[in-house]
Design a binder for these strands. Structure first.
Lengths: 341, 341
DNA sequence: CTGTTAGCGCTTTCAG
DNA sequence: CTGAAAGCGCTAACAG
């Protein structure tokens, strides 16, 4: 005795109606006698009828589902973006298929394939740190499925993107360090493959230039975001004849890791070395000392990205516009640079 | 010029074969001449053919998709469970449809509906703090879709569950506080609707009983997990003639919040008041003082839950077994109870 | 307002 | 080994 799903046919038979009439009643088509409609709706309710999404998708070639691929959701950044995206999507009748690449290119490709197989109507992506080839994402365009990037964007694809002004934010962060009197400012940078790494690095460099501080390449360390490696770099920087008096980290998890190591090494923050992060993660306000950082409007980022994407869905490809939205950032000054009095 | 998806018919025509033969070649059916198979596979590759999942689901009534509903993914707990679940699922050819209830009963119901509409083959759930009615989940059973709970389980449904021994873990935590000399131990408990709240509360009480400490109901505060309210309760507890000398919090986010407030109030941790949490979140090791807590095998929880679920999928309902797996916990002693020497 | 018919793309008998 | 035909559940013309 297998459980049978109620179908339109079941309802049609019991009510002695044609399938099409039942279908019309169920979909709110005008040409149905009020009485008939009520009878159908009542029976549908009673039998717990549920439209079969597959037959509909088979006909319409639409799924009302948006895919989203993020690098990770251990730190609070991406989850909050997802919350924003989720909200906008469900308002407009779309579901979200969420997956995480785990910062691996291979997994990202696999995820993309799943999205393609499940025929998402659109795709939201923030790239893994390893991604340098974008064929798996271009495949969506070949199929007429719009793609929108956020945070970690692909520069070679002309599609909508939602970012913050990473250059400007980094500039602000470093200038802040200079203003509190720091001169030897180190930068723990991200991998060059990511545009955000390059932009933040440029902001760092230009802030130094503006204040006539010579750029010391020894103070710039580019790493692959594997947190366990931060220890090596921080030790390398501090166990030096001429150690830095400040550290600008590519992101908050890196900064938090660095702070712990600096403390273990017995240096004072911010007196010996000030620290600035990027993104204002959940933990950044209560690590000790609390972390000065750049806050990004995370939820808004998800909302805007989803809206940009939904604006493309259902439009012809030729009408797609590669809009780039730049959201505002804010420097949050905390104890890792300026001690509370 | 709309983009046309390659179909079996396209391939059949170009190769002058029947649809069925192409289909057989594509699905690895034995009765196909090697030569034919190769030709089909080659052309499929060339034309970037992709099986239409809807027609298949329409026939098989399966989606190879598992749904998972969690209360939130801001703290690191649930994301890590999801990672474990994801891994097991994809190994066995299943995709994951992730959604979060945001601790709201209504949203959980809406999410469940989405899962039902998308015809997931199985559902993994950790309940929202508000959920007291389970009709939206029982609906899955009516449709022959298996459900497995983890962490926040539903006691009235006889389905597989993956939990830790919350009673025992709480007992261990409180006994640890007693062993370091604490006697007035407060408990910031979770809402009564959640079984984990009740079990941890019982563990707390029984540990006190075992050591002949009278239970003081004034020291037990049950709250709804809204972090912003922790301030009120901690103040209430400490601004007292006879304040507690220890606090056992229902979970780590609560404990972390409490620690910050206790510090702001100028009390010393652990001398004046020791703090213990539950779950070993990402931030717990680096808050200051670092948090003594109960660690749960989060990733394993996801893996086991998914395996239990997949064991039901494809089996007849009559053969489902409501296994309950209890995973091991470990007390992690850190500076919030015992100062590092 | 209602019924009939023809598919959406695929798998699965049943015949060779 | 291959082909023809039926049909999964629904919608969308086309006729009344």
């Amino acid at each position: 005795m297998k459980s049978h799903q109620t179908t339109i046919i079941d309802i049609a038979q019991k009510l002695n109606l044609s399938k099409s009439t039942v279908s019309r009643a169920l979909t709110g088509h005008p040409n149905v006698k009020e009485e008939t409609r009520k009878a159908v709706l009542a029976l549908a309710e009673e039998l717990d009828y549920q439209r079969n999404i597959f037959s509909i998708s088979l006909i319409t070639n639409k799924t009302k589902t948006i895919g989203i691929i993020v690098p990770e959701f251990i730190t609070s950044f991406f989850p909050q973006v997802i919350i924003g995206a989720q909200e906008v999507a469900s308002q407009q009748g779309y579901n979200l298929l969420v997956s995480q690449s785990n910062e691996s290119y291979e997994t990202e490709v696999a995820n993309a394939k799943v999205m393609l197989t499940n025929r998402v109507d659109g795709l939201l992506v923030s790239l893994s740190k390893e991604t340098r080839n974008f064929d798996h994402l271009k495949a969506f365009h070949k199929r007429g499925v719009p793609v929108v990037f956020f945070n970690r964007v692909c520069e070679e694809m002309m599609v909508p993107k939602v970012v913050v002004d990473d250059y400007d934010a980094a500039f602000k962060a470093v200038e802040h360090l200079i203003q509190i009197g720091k001169r030897r400012i180190a930068h723990l940078a991200g991998p060059e493959s990511l545009a955000i790494s390059r932009k933040r690095l440029n902001g760092y460099k230009d802030a130094l230039k503006k204040h006539n501080i010579k750029i010391d390449e020894d103070l710039i360390i580019s790493y692959d975001l594997t947190l366990s490696k931060v220890r090596i770099y921080v030790k390398h920087l501090l166990d030096n004849d001429n150690p830095p008096d400040a550290l600008f980290a590519i992101n908050d998890p890196t900064a938090i890791e660095a702070i712990q190591i600096i403390k273990q090494m017995g240096r004072r923050i911010p007196e010996d070395i000030a620290v600035v992060g990027f993104s204002d993660n959940y933990a950044s306000s209560f690590i000790e000392p609390s972390l000065t950082t750049i806050s990004q409007p995370v939820k808004e980022m998800g909302e805007v990205a989803m809206q940009l994407l939904l604006d493309q869905v259902d439009k012809e490809m030729s009408k797609w516009k590669p809009l780039v939205k730049v959201l505002n950032t804010e420097l949050i000054v905390r104890n890792s640079t300026v001690k509370a009095s």
